[in-house]
Nucleic acid binder design. Structure first.
Length: 419
DNA sequence: TCTGGGGTCCTAGGACCC
DNA sequence: TCTGGGGTCCTAGGACCC
């Protein structure tokens, strides 16, 4: 049996933990630059606000219906996620953190009835963190996902759905919308819609060869998992990332090379920090830039360049230097750039760094320097020590509705006043 | 005016090898 | 007219996830 713990409307719920006055009221959280809606409370959902909707389209509605609007505060959400995961880890035999707001667990050695156990887990997370969650328990991960959605949907389940008897599973699959199955995305969803297939059961009823031929082995896995055949395993140790990216859209188009150069340097530096954070090194540094694809009246351009390094590195200096070289190669005058990104790939463990025979850097000295930079920035806040190429003003985003960093910044910590 | 960010895996096709 | 078989590696693109 697999369990899945899924936080309800996670970002919106995080904001509410510190604003209990907003419980029962519509709340939305926006993406960077306050661009799109990326999280909604149930009340906001019932106002018809959809996921990914551009904010300007709902601005009027938000005002008239008194929707509380927040700019994304990832420092807060990341920290709240850690709290949820820490609580879960203390309760379950083994945990696989799947995303910022979801984790799978197994029930090996649990003697309680699974649904009682699930309810206990949900209540405890709620009590310890203030975040409401939905728990699904079923024979495969794909079915556990479905169970957690039912737990969210039906109040009488009280936050946990345990689904195991074949006849119960069959009943659920007969009614569960195919597009909502884990592994069936927008594309396949549309395809099935055209074919007139609506429920998970109708998908299961397709011949295996058809699924294999049209959807590859990913589709086949989903098909098997829905039938209780376990194909997606449990992984306690998160694998090292194979790719590390920092990319952002800009509030306004950028035309000048120098400005892009500083931005790319900053992104590269952030990438390098993430890379060291997982004790890795990379052999490829890639920069890309693109124009605003929504402006059809403007000339469009996207370009990217990958620089292959002679040996793996985790040095901010190396990574920034190569990202800037790549940018120089792709930059063309006369375009309004709306977004830039830096990608690190060919990632290997830093402990296995193979030093080239002709390497000129003094590695031990160099890594001590990086360690110091990272620890200073960790203690005193990001960007306290930067490299000169980044310039003196950090990358600016519109964040008009930002909440305080209640749990990660001393100056934002809540004060309890005696009456 | 305004439209997010960060990932993974699979597949098909071409170049190349023996 | 007919023109092998088996393999690897790389890349681009497409699908998915949150």
């Amino acid at each position: 049996m697999y369990g899945l713990c899924d936080c309800n409307n996670f970002y919106a719920s995080c904001e509410r933990v510190f604003r209990p006055d907003l419980v029962g009221k519509p709340v939305v959280v926006l993406s960077n630059n306050d661009g799109c809606v990326i999280a909604r409370s149930n009340e906001a959902k019932s106002l018809g606000i959809t996921m990914g909707q551009p904010f300007y389209q709902i601005r009027a509605l938000a005002e008239s219906r008194r929707v509380s609007v927040f700019s994304a505060n990832f420092a807060l959400y990341g920290d709240m996620s850690n709290r949820v995961m820490t609580t879960l880890r203390s309760l379950v035999p083994a945990l696989e953190i799947y995303s910022i707001d979801e984790a799978f667990f197994n029930l090996e050695g649990i003697t309680e009835a699974p649904d009682e156990f699930g309810h206990m887990v949900g209540r405890t997370v709620r009590r310890n963190t203030g975040i409401p969650v939905s728990i699904g328990i079923a024979p495969t991960k794909t079915l556990a996902k479905i169970a957690s959605k039912l737990a969210k949907q039906y109040p009488k389940l009280a936050g946990c759905c345990y689904m195991h008897r074949p006849e119960d599973i069959a009943k659920v699959l007969n009614r569960f919308p195919l597009q909502d199955v884990w592994g069936i995305g927008r594309r396949y969803g549309k395809m099935f819609d055209r074919m007139g297939l609506r429920t998970a059961q109708q998908f299961v009823d397709l011949p295996q060869e058809w699924v294999r031929a049209r959807m590859g082995i990913g589709g086949l896995r989903t098909w098997n998992e829905l039938q209780g055949q376990e194909c997606i395993g449990f992984e306690q140790m998160p694998p090292r990332k194979q790719q590390i990216t920092i990319s952002r859209s800009f509030p306004k188009e950028v035309y000048a090379f120098d400005e892009l150069d500083r931005i790319v340097a900053e992104f590269a530096s952030m990438c390098a920090e993430k890379l060291r954070g997982q004790q890795s090194a990379c052999r490829e540094v890639q920069s890309y830039i693109c124009t605003n694809r929504h402006r059809e009246d403007q000339p469009q351009r996207y370009d990217t360049r990958i620089i292959v390094l002679p040996e793996p590195t985790d040095s901010t200096f190396d990574i920034v230097r190569h990202a800037r070289v790549a940018l120089k190669q792709i930059f063309r005058q006369g375009y309004g750039y709306k977004k830039a990104g830096v990608v690190l790939s060919q990632i290997s463990p830093a402990s296995e760094l193979q030093v080239s025979l002709f390497s000129s850097t003094d590695r031990p000295k160099h890594s001590r320097l990086m360690e110091v930079i990272d620890s200073v920035n960790k203690e005193y806040g990001r960007g306290k020590i930067t490299i000169a190429a980044q310039g003196t003003t950090p990358f600016h985003m519109n964040r008009e509705h930002l909440s305080p960093c209640y749990t990660t910044d001393w100056k934002d910590i809540l004060v309890v006043k005696a009456k």
